[in-house]
Design a protein around this nucleic acid. Structure first.
Length: 377
DNA sequence: ATAATTTGACCGGG
DNA sequence: CCCGGTCAAATTAT
């Protein structure tokens, strides 16, 4: 079903990604020491170039694979390009799509994030994520210490927005709430800047929160991508620290997937393709926020099936970037990590810990992954 | 008066 | 039949 990945291509890919990581680290150092912006700019350029190469390889691969897809795939969204990978997950999705072809698609994009609530003032269930929600139910969940609350978008009726979320306090850490979003908002995506209303409202300004975001592999690819956009739109605009992981619903939370040094067989690149698509799509949809791929970097050591973004630009106008797959994947100390934004593990060669004022960075507002990848599409 | 929340009933998938 | 998710009437808040 799937051809093995060309080893040399894979090697190059890994090298490129690794270089990107290393340069990002270097950039971090530069930024830490407030050295010349020229140096930073050059580094950023290198990083972008590195990721360009890597992503283009992935894109090319994916498209090559696309040609081998069964005819049915044509009925899928164009974005199903991701599915072509031999990743079992995507295959499964695809099969499910085919199976559901007669039914109304019921799978909605779904992702979970864990938000640490620092201020324990009862706002756990109503953490403002920029959207307005209406609670429509609450259930005690078997085996869980805390009930799960169900919210739907306030505009469900008025605008037919089907987005919902579930909020449940974490058993492990009561200061955390797990928020599972389902469906994307059709109500206010067009709004100028939904999340920022929190600021303009002058309402309570919670401390920057950190959220761990887990993309669940459900729903059509298009929605997965939009899902990522929404997460970013929501959180980048409101001082949420967000870490995103792509994972499979039917596997361990942290599967042993690796882009790694030893041969990626078939599927892994697909996940990467997914990442790149997500990134491309996200950058594309950022509107006013045009994010450089440098800030949407696939991690490059083990457990690479996630990427992370983190930011906190509302409260302190800072932009953080955290990558440490190892730590995340074994995240017993994850909570420590997220509760101490500046203490990100640094002993991994792939770890990045960038914290710098966003206004010191010369973002090219016109750059997007689309630009970077347009050539290959 | 209207909007939001609460909470037990109901429903459907597994 | 159990359980998670949703509905909807009653209640509470604005």
């Amino acid at each position: 079903m799937e051809k093995a990945v060309n080893p040399s291509e894979q090697k190059t890919l890994i090298i490129e990604l690794t270089q990107g990581q290393e340069m990002a680290n270097e950039l971090k150092k530069q930024l830490d020491s407030f050295t010349s912006s020229d140096t930073c700019e050059a580094l950023v350029q290198n990083i972008l170039s590195t990721y360009d190469k890597a992503l283009s390889m992935l894109t090319w691969r994916a498209e090559k694979g696309h040609e081998t897809l069964s005819p049915q795939s044509d009925s899928l969204a164009d974005n199903s390009i991701i599915s072509e990978g031999s990743n079992g997950l995507f295959i499964k999705d695809q099969l499910q799509c085919q199976k559901d072809v007669t039914k109304k698609r019921k799978t909605l994009p779904k992702w979970t994030e864990q938000v640490r609530v620092c201020y324990g003032n009862g706002h756990e269930g109503s953490l403002d994520d920029g959207y307005s929600w209406r609670k429509y139910g609450q259930k005690d969940i078997l085996g869980a210490n805390y009930p799960r609350a169900y919210y739907r978008c306030t505009h469900r009726n008025s605008r037919g927005c089907l987005a919902t979320k579930q909020v449940q306090k974490s058993d492990m850490d009561p200061s955390m709430v797990e928020i599972t979003y389902k469906g994307r908002h059709s109500c206010c995506n067009q709004a100028a800047n939904p999340p920022s209303k929190i600021i303009s409202d002058g309402k309570e300004m919670p401390k920057p929160k950190k959220a761990r975001l887990i993309l669940l592999e459900e729903g059509e690819e298009e929605n997965k991508q939009r899902t990522a956009q929404e997460m970013m739109q929501q959180h980048l605009g409101q001082g949420l620290k967000v870490e995103t992981e792509i994972l499979k619903t039917d596997e361990e939370i942290f599967p042993s997937f690796s882009l790694s040094y030893t041969g990626v067989d078939q599927s892994e690149n697909l996940e990467s393709q997914f990442l790149s698509d997500v990134m491309r799509e996200s950058a594309d949809a950022m509107g006013g926020y045009c994010y450089s791929p440098a800030f949407l970097s696939p991690a490059s050591s083990e457990s690479n099936n996630y990427f992370s973004i983190s930011s906190s630009c509302q409260m302190d106008n800072n932009f953080g970037y955290i990558t440490d797959p190892q730590t995340l994947s074994k995240s017993n100390d994850f909570t420590d990590m997220i509760s101490t934004p500046t203490s990100v593990i640094t002993d991994s060669p792939f770890c990045c810990d960038l914290d710098f004022p966003i206004d010191q960075v010369d973002f090219d507002p016109c750059f997007s992954l689309d630009d970077a990848l347009a050539y290959f599409s």
